[in-house]
Design a protein around this nucleic acid. Sequence first.
DNA 1: CCCCTATATACTCAATTAGAGTATATTAGA
DNA 2: TCTAATATACTCTAATTGAGTATATAGGGG
Lengths: 320, 320
Amino acid sequence: MVSQASIEIGLNAAIVSVREGQPQVLVTREGDQWDALPYGPFTPIDHRTLEIGLRNWVRAQTGLELGYVEQLYTFGDRGRHEQPDDTGSHIVSVGYLALITKDPLESLEGTSFSHCYGFLPWEDWRNGKPDILTSELEPRLKRWAAQPDQDDSRDSVLTRPERLRICFAMEGAGWDEEKVLERFELLYEAGLAAEAKRDGREAVKQWDDVPQLGRPMQFDHRRVLATAMSRLRGKLKYRPVIFELLPDSFTLFELQKIVEAILGHHLHKQNFRRLVENAGLVEPTGGVSTQTGGRPAKLFRFRRDVLLERPSTGVRMKGG
Amino acid sequence: MVSQASIEIGLNAAIVSVREGQPQVLVTREGDQWDALPYGPFTPIDHRTLEIGLRNWVRAQTGLELGYVEQLYTFGDRGRHEQPDDTGSHIVSVGYLALITKDPLESLEGTSFSHCYGFLPWEDWRNGKPDILTSELEPRLKRWAAQPDQDDSRDSVLTRPERLRICFAMEGAGWDEEKVLERFELLYEAGLAAEAKRDGREAVKQWDDVPQLGRPMQFDHRRVLATAMSRLRGKLKYRPVIFELLPDSFTLFELQKIVEAILGHHLHKQNFRRLVENAGLVEPTGGVSTQTGGRPAKLFRFRRDVLLERPSTGVRMKGG
DNA sequence: CCCCTATATACTCAATTAGAGTATATTAGA
DNA sequence: TCTAATATACTCTAATTGAGTATATAGGGG
């Protein structure tokens, strides 16, 4: 066995909701500090499992009782790379994704919902390619890619230009909406995230002055959020998780808007209907909604039995 | 903040390889103890990241230098539920999946490759439905499902019969090869895994005598293995990870056999070829293999450029 | 009341993909 | 040369997908 260092496990929750057509994440905001996700240490004496610990922290900090919760990833360094934190103990952080339809109340003081795409503005393609990509990111990324890759600690099977092509759809490659985490980590590595500067990353030096490329977050919380978006965008396509973000009854177009908000791009309306109905994901409630401004829309509910029928069910669907 | 208990992070590796048509996992075997995966504690002083720590432990214990490594999941309890281990510290275990094509040497003493399906025999459907399902598991599972579900700590949206139907294809439902972990956890919960008895699970009491339902493993290592198989079976379909298990050049039938070994069922040969070739996953090396006993088979290699082209590439394919 | 606009919903059609099978090619060995 | 064994190529049908057009039903202005 090797020498023991004090280890602390941090539990972090990306609590996602879609409101007013925008995906939002619950953050705690204090003074002029960067935003943070709800978090707290795992204490096995109080919490039987990691997930129970997370639920308790979220309840204590926001008053929310979480429903759907899913573990994302465990990060061995939590920002401030290779340095123990203030208390002298090394922190390993476990990220979680939680989905809620609407916060019942405006929660506790100091926490509020904030647009996910404020933190990751390059991820929202619903109004076409985001300006920040063309004007800010791409020129700098090209400059970064042109330099030799010195980081031999990474098992880099791919060159920088190749990684850029894959992650950021350079050179005519397609944009893969699921690569949210890969994109953020590439930006961090290139020194283009404010967190990289805070952590004293070497790559930052090459930039004279970098504008704010998405709101930063404390610790590694923006990375947790990126992981959450990646997972959610992927899982959407083969599991009916999207309904965790919807009320009990909804119109098909409302469902589509929520999916689009998460995916960050538009879908073909008629084909989306066909897919959702043929897959047996929903069933009509019988009611209609006249709030739509045209022909009233039928109301649907999630058809729970679909879980018992197909091994894989979700709203897999390409752009439109 | 809450009272601090000493926490230790255990790193565990499910190192998978396919040899002689069987998926195998590297285990350490000591005396008459149950098998264990290579593992060791994470010590931030020595290891900059979790993954580096894992690689070091594996190197030390087996002499292997790992290539492809992927984090699976972090478990807050490591067998022996709700009890601190011998040293008085609570252990959180992080599971990893590693893939290797062949072990270069017979490794260190005490470690050897062991058939994955020896630990999870109900997962191999290549020779039809496994006997152990019909003769041992299904009768007991039905008995378990008939009892009321008292565990209200689990957010059980599903009843026991429903879970059985989904996980074990009861009542004519289809077998979902990806649900390896769900199946193992259900068996554990039902008291049908030897680990459940070791951990003093309540559910075990209902069984007078349960035969060995798959080889058990130390700690929660069989759960890590189940997680690894689940992930691998899923990932196969949208990422070209399978080539981590193959030598540089191979015939299409060899590729198919490896995929079948992992998936645990047979595929339609002609369609498999078509899929793999059309997806641009491979390119001919020019050579042929005459080891096949009939017409010589063309040799192929993994076409790396596919990574740059499509966002999602794998050998998605249903049975045959 | 009729027409216009806006939205929901239904239907069409071509292209592609998937599932299942048959046919042909190429080796080794009797 | 014939046969067995395997590799590889091709066929055919049924689904599925991508993209569009057509129809239905509301509210509001004239």
